[in-house]
């Protein structure tokens, strides 16, 4: 079977900086290879591992979600696939073309939204932006005009096409960035956090557009740290943390991996750290606790075999600790629970 996107054992490490994060993905990276003894040698600098042994194969027409917290290695992975970064090791191919050896062929087949609303010229109009990028993509003049008109209409930008981008809303800027990515009619789309910073309505509209693009046959690799977005859009999801893929499957299968368990969520006030005592409840397999500063309450997520059997003990312990139950519920596992179960931390942490 031929894949539209293939990444085989991709690995990226950066020289560590004295002050600040690693360059590729912001904050992530384990200091390795610390050979600080050799002064003045470039090899002496410690390396930050941003992506470690990532392998993905994405079929034509698939929406593939790369889900992980900020700094997990999502953007570094997508930048390597987009030819902006060279992998330290491993290979990647887009529509069969190697991202290192055939970058031009790769770019011809890619539409990319990186950096979202900042990736267009704010002092040009929407139409002027698209005309400029159409020339860079070598789309002949007449054809370019037709495509631009079609994209402006399809992405609901027609009315403001001749206004400066600086007057656009965030949602419109993001749609313009998507229009730019779609200009060359690429078979593969790389969308890095496409809905970040958008209001709920704009984000919903953009998700709908992404679904339509899939229906038209585009292969889409989407990075996000919004679980609901990954869940709603993706045919398959890779959960990435500390540069490694820690789970890869359909959203349903990922959630089903937790079906042997029930997920109980307790919100309680006036408690000390609940982790030590909550772990003692019979049948509890995993406990994750988060202090909600706004409400000054603890949110305790318990993965357990039988909620009904454990509930009385849970309530008794809360009372014994001097706490007060605000909310108690049992829910279907979500991707957040999958992430919690795999990493022991919330996606937003």
């Amino acid at each position: 079977m031929s894949f539209m996107i293939e990444a085989l054992s991709l690995h990226k490490e950066f020289p560590a900086r004295k002050n600040g994060p690693s360059p590729g993905n912001g904050k992530n990276g384990d200091p390795r290879n610390d050979g600080g003894q050799r002064l003045f040698s470039p090899k002496a600098r410690p390396q930050l591992v941003a992506v470690e042994d990532v392998s993905l194969t994405i079929q034509s027409g698939e929406i593939f979600g790369l889900l992980g917290p900020n700094g997990a290695g999502k953007s570094t992975t997508i930048r390597m696939l987009a030819t902006l970064l060279e992998p330290s090791r491993g290979t990647a191919r887009i529509a069969g073309f190697d991202v290192v050896r055939q970058p031009q062929a790769v770019r011809r087949r890619l539409g990319t939204v990186l950096g979202g609303e900042r990736s267009t010229y704010w002092k040009l109009t929407g139409r002027e932006n698209l005309e400029y990028f159409a020339a860079l993509y070598q789309i002949p003049g007449g054809e370019a005009r037709l495509r631009i008109q079609e994209l402006l209409a399809r992405l609901d930008l027609e009315a403001k096409a001749n206004e400066l981008v600086e007057r656009y809303s965030s949602g419109m800027k993001q749609r313009l960035a998507l229009a730019r990515a779609l200009l060359p009619r690429p078979p593969v789309l790389l969308l890095d956090e496409p809905t970040v910073g958008l209001d709920p309505q704009s984000a919903r509209n953009l998700r709908q557009i992404i679904r339509e693009l899939k229906e038209q046959g585009h292969t889409i690799l989407l990075t996000t740290h919004y679980m609901e977005e990954a869940d709603q859009l993706s045919d398959r999801i890779a959960i990435i943390d500390h540069g490694r893929v820690i789970a890869l499957d359909t959203p349903r299968a990922l959630k089903a991996s937790l079906t042997q368990q029930e997920v109980c969520r307790l919100e309680a006030a006036g408690l000390p750290d609940p982790k030590p005592w909550a772990s003692q409840i019979p049948g509890v397999q995993e406990v994750n606790c988060r202090f909600l500063t706004e409400s000054q309450t603890w949110e305790v997520t318990l993965h357990l075999k039988d909620y009904r059997a454990a509930a009385p003990e849970l309530l008794r312990l809360v009372t014994e600790q001097g706490g007060r139950v605000i909310q108690l519920s049992v829910k279907e596992p979500t991707l957040e629970d999958v992430f919690l179960s795999l990493t022991g931390k919330a996606l937003r942490d």
Partner: peptide, 18 residues
Amino acid sequence: TSGTLEANWLAPVSRLLL
């Protein structure tokens, strides 16, 4: 600084031509 460099460099043209 405006954030457009990557968008330019993702185009299938030589960076020297740009």
